[in-house]
Amino acid sequence: MTAWVIARNTFGEAIRKKILNVFLILALGSVLISLTFTFLEFRQQVVILKSFGLGMVQFWGLFIAIIMGISLIPADIEQRTIYTILSKPVKRYEYVLGRFLGGAITLAVNVALMGAAFLLVFLLKVNTRALESLASLDFGPFWTSWVWSGEVPGLIGGIAMVYMKLLLLLAVAVCFSTFATVTVNFFLSSAVFIAGSISSVTEAMSKSPNTPIVLRWLYAAVHYVVPNFGNYDVQNPIIHPEVPAADLSLYMWKAVFYGLAYTIILLVVGVLVFERKEV
């Protein structure tokens, strides 16, 4: 309950910060840029729009997740606002959970807004012809030629995967922020993100007979122990609906569970460290 109060306040704080709006505009802008590639074939344009949409939601979301994650708790300590909070009947773990939850909500709202903007652009794009009839004030063809793309659910699933990836990164940064300084944490979280993103590489290396045995273990450790962000890169079958992707939704659920389990691990570690932290 107390954690929820802190989460709400964290969210309120975040949405009043202009910086998040900036990322929102950047995301929308970069999706719109992909609309200018009209010299390509229509299908290619749609493919690029989808790639850009999912990619840009992730790209700008990364900044939001990392900047929020590394600063949520340290900002309170730095600005000494934490004194008046922790001297109220707030348990330390409630505070950590509240800050994280607030960040998670902020991230969700941002990803949802970026995603919605992208889906809107996408629907307008695939309905270019319907819109042209609208421009010529011919409403009849508009109604008949408008399509509700069957790809929207898939794209929403893709956006959800991006969110899970960002949520896991947020948890990493929040966990590290209980012991690392903001600058150190920025590099630390980024490094973990990259190490966890190249999972296809680490997996292959850990199984390759050409890798020395010690390195194989190291790669396996990286692959299984570092949070595996690569698990959420399932955009390809979403971008190419014609490609059969068996059991994709089963996979996505497992990836969600993976992310939630790992998030809990990171939060437990963060809480344990923060319990002993001098503020």
Partner: peptide, 27 residues
């Protein structure tokens, strides 16, 4: 933390063979 980590590794083992299907691109 111990069972949670075990769960995470187990899930990763499950995910790996499936994941390659959805990640056809090469680096």
């Amino acid at each position: 933390l111990v069972p949670l980590l075990a769960l995470v590794v187990w899930l990763q083992v499950q995910l790996d063979p499936m994941r390659q299907r959805y990640q056809p691109g090469k680096v």
